[in-house]
Amino acid sequence: MAEAAPARRVAAGDAAALVAILVLVALAGWRSLGYGVWSYGEPGPGLFPFLVCALAGICGVVALAATLAGDAPAAEIDPDAAQQEGPMMWGKLALYVGVIAAWPWLMAPLGFVLSTAAALFVVLRLAEGMAWGPAAAVLVGTVGASWLVFERILGVPLPHGLLGVG
């Protein structure tokens, strides 16, 4: 006897991402036409981007149709999924994202040492919940070692900022 087919579920996140991609390639494709696709019997600067946007668009529509029909690939492309358990930790994730977003804007005014120390403080103490002692040890060790290796040994001119050291 044939087994009952599992119920098909539309992956809303997948569909939203594919719609976003379709909007992006539609805009890029339209812009490509403005660069000139063909002129004087020769390919223009817009031809190649227009063709690749068309490829992404056509395949995107096919992928979206399959997703809406409940035919999205079963497994996430996530090498960590098998190693993890429990619910999503949105707060921790938001702290990491915040650090990644803010770090580049703080590097120039604060300098490498202070901005890295601030980023590591947020990650180690707030996101990872590490105790003060180990967090301070990791912070000082990481900032010191990376400053020594990159600024002093490799000669990378790291931003100096408030402290006047890279």
Partner: peptide, 9 residues
Amino acid sequence: LGLAERRLR
């Protein structure tokens, strides 16, 4: 970010 999203076994 992938490692941060859930507790590791």
